[in-house]
Simulated assay, not measured.
Amino acid sequence: MNQKIKKIGVLTSGGDAPGMNAAIRAVVRSCTFHKFSCVGIFRGYEGLIEGDFKELGPRSVKNIINKGGTFLKSARSKEFRTKEGRKKAFENLQNNAIDALVVIGGDGTFTGATIFSEEHNFPIVGLPGTIDNDIYGTDVTIGYDTALNTVVEAIDKIRDTANSHNRLFLVEVMGRNAGSIALNAGIGAGAEEVLIPEENLGRERLLQSLKRSKKAGKSSSIIVVSEGDQIGKNIFKLADYITNNLNEYEVRVTVLGHIQRGGAPSCYDRVLASRLGVSAVDALLDGKSDCMIGIAHNKITSVPFSEAIKSSNELDLELVRVSDIVSL
């Protein structure tokens, strides 16, 4: 056990994700279990620079496991990108006798943590908190399962309208560089097509697919579009293209947007966040640093920040094949 650690700070950074509160709760109560202090840092790295700290105990995090978002708040910090800003942050940690950090966020959060750790030789462990599920080194990120369920529920409701009016709906979901939400939600919601940035379906192939669907007797269709897909300049341009080249359907667009980030976390995300939060504290006590705690094959893993940031998850080709088959 690392005897030097007496107080751990915890913060959330980047986009919020359901389950972050559960992770914070687990870190705080794990600190209490090991009989040392925990400090909540508000507004991510911005709060770290400004010294926006608060001591947290077991009762400080009661009744938050079921809450979406993050009660520690999150913010982007331009100042933390500067050496001077990071120096201020380090001085605040020293002044408050904080010995190590747990940061919860995505690749931007881990990039900042890596630079800070290298400059000041400060112990930091990260937890993957992002709905996009685009962090290398973990099978699942905190918030992803909840976001999937939110998307599927929304598409189920949209389908009711699509069926009632013989309409074609294009539903845009989050995923600028990763199509994991679109691919899995598309299969789960029974979409006719899924458009993702990893695979360029092509507009002509899309039209042919829709024509086959119509010929097969489908009176309505759902196409799930990841926001990073490159078939059209954007989903509205794609809708115009389909309308101009295929008059069999009445085309409508729904952009789900930030609704995907909110809501109470699923049971899976609450359990995942709790496991990762406890494991983050364990990792610091074992002397680990500059790494992310993830999960692979339902076992807790540790991956260097450098790998989590620079590498990327490969597209699951089996899921692509499944999507093609079950959408006939």
Rank of each mutant, 00 (worst) to 15 (best):
L168Q: 07
G175T: 08
N163F: 04
G175W: 02
N184P: 07
I158K: 07
A191H: 03
H165C: 13
P197D: 09
A178D: 03
V151T: 07
I187A: 04
S164P: 04
R176L: 01
F169Q: 07
I158W: 00
A182K: 01
D145E: 14
M174L: 12
E193I: 06
I196A: 05
A178H: 04
L170N: 07
A191G: 03
S180A: 15
A191C: 11
A178L: 07
D156S: 12
T150L: 06
G190S: 07
I181R: 10
V151I: 15
G188P: 09
G186W: 02
G188D: 00
A154I: 13
A191P: 00
G175E: 04
V152I: 15
V173M: 08
A147C: 15
I155N: 05
N149I: 06
I187H: 11
D160Q: 12
M174R: 00
H165N: 12
D160V: 10
F169Y: 15
G186C: 10
A189F: 08
K157D: 00
V194R: 02
P197R: 05
D145S: 09
T150D: 01
I158N: 04
D145T: 09
H165S: 09
K157E: 11
R167E: 15
G190C: 12
I181L: 15
V151Y: 02
A191Y: 04
N166E: 14
V152D: 01
R159H: 11
T146P: 06
N184S: 14
D160P: 01
E199W: 05
L195H: 09
V151S: 03
D145A: 04
E199D: 12
A178E: 06
L170W: 08
R176W: 00
N166H: 14
N200T: 12
G186V: 00
D156Q: 11
K157G: 00
I196D: 01
T161K: 06
I155Y: 11
A182R: 05
N163G: 14
S180R: 04
E199A: 11
E153H: 10
N163E: 15
D160K: 10
R159K: 14
I196T: 07
D156I: 12
I158E: 08
N177G: 15
L183A: 00
G186M: 10
T150W: 00
D156Y: 09
D145N: 14
L195Y: 03
M174I: 06
G190D: 04
E199F: 12
R167L: 11
E153L: 00
E198L: 05
D160R: 05
N149T: 11
N184D: 07
L168M: 07
L170H: 00
G186L: 01
G190F: 10
N163S: 14
E172L: 13
V171R: 08
E193D: 14
R176S: 08
E172C: 11
I181Q: 03
L148S: 06
D145Y: 00
L168T: 03
N166Y: 14
E198W: 03
L168Y: 03
A162G: 06
V173W: 05
P197H: 07
N166W: 03
T146S: 15
E153G: 06
R176H: 13
L195R: 10
N149D: 13
A154F: 10
A162Y: 10
I187L: 13
S180V: 02
L195N: 12
G175V: 08
E172P: 02
N163K: 15
K157M: 14
D156H: 11
I187W: 04
I181M: 13
T146D: 01
A191W: 06
S164H: 13
T161H: 06
A178Y: 04
